[in-house]
Design a protein around this nucleic acid. Structure first.
Lengths: 158, 158
DNA sequence: ACCTCTTTAAGAATAATTCTTATTTACATA
DNA sequence: TATGTAAATAAGAATTATTCTTAAAGAGGT
């Protein structure tokens, strides 16, 4: 029950297909790579490299921040993780590779995944099909989450 | 005819409402602000601060890059321009504030605006309405534009 | 024209990310 | 199971993108 909500793919399944993908891409299965991937796969937020590094340091005290950056870049090249697009300067990452969308709280910067099947089934405007070849289409919703709404309300009352 | 395609708002109208907005926000109408805004408003791409700076230097040789950054940040705070969300490290900006969406070429990084009225009319999944208050929802399409498809084809043939 | 507060230019500083190099490690092969 | 070799890592230097500090210049009210 304390497992992360994630479609119906278990962590173990993710780790297995990750290892498989590394082998077929000739990426060596180092301790660092396995741990960085596992940390991201179990994260419920969409952490930046620094956050991941901080979390991993607890069990890998010599892990360098550079390795986290380098490894995430390698994973992204091989489509094992995704860089999330944001307006902030620090890049954030996710291991969830299946089709989904993001809601971002502009106040606390929390990012949440959601599914939107009826949007996915929608076809894009005709003029866009002329533009080139499309690899994916995603929705980003911006707003203020309930938690932050409550906090801001308190501030007003002060 | 050589005018930028832009809904049906002319540059002159944009400049006027920009000046109006500055006055009511107590932002002084400096030469730098006017020129930076005009340059962004007439740009058909979605330039980063450095690109804007480079373009403006031709007519304002002493304009500092810091002023471009600072001014764009001020404008964004006052909702006069928007920071575009991308996966790249350099922030990119646009003056177009009306509802629209983006197609991004992953190869040349070109960003194009498009309208999608039927999507705008769509309401978001029910669970998202629970999440908090939504200020906007936007689509980003990723892919490869025709120009880059052609280039990559050439490379393959070499 | 003058005062006051804001804005700017220049360069220093900071933040985020990447590079360089010596060392270590994975893993294919003996 | 030991060994060679290319790939990966740690550490710290370097780079890139952005922001801060400070003195001078400018906007806009009087």
């Amino acid at each position: 029950m304390s497992e992360k909500k994630r479609g119906n793919t278990s962590l173990q399944q993710m780790m297995e297909s990750f290892e498989e993908a590394c082998r077929s891409a000739d990426l060596k299965l180092t301790h660092q790579r396995l741990e960085i991937y596992r940390e991201l796969a179990t994260a419920t937020d969409h952490p930046c490299a620094e956050t991941l590094h901080r979390r991993l340091l607890k069990h890998m005290p010599t892990l360098s921040l550079d390795t986290v950056y380098r490894t995430l870049a390698t994973f992204a090249q091989h489509h094992l993780v995704k860089k999330v697009q944001t307006v902030d300067s620090q890049a954030r990452f996710e291991a969830e590779m299946s089709q989904h969308h993001h809601v971002i709280c502009d106040s606390c910067k929390e990012i949440m995944d959601f599914q939107w099947g009826s949007f996915d089934a929608f076809s894009v405007p005709g003029d866009i099909e002329q533009w080139g070849s499309i690899t994916n289409k995603n929705v980003t919703i911006h707003g203020t989450c309930r938690k932050c709404q409550a906090t801001q309300q308190e501030v007003k009352q002060t």
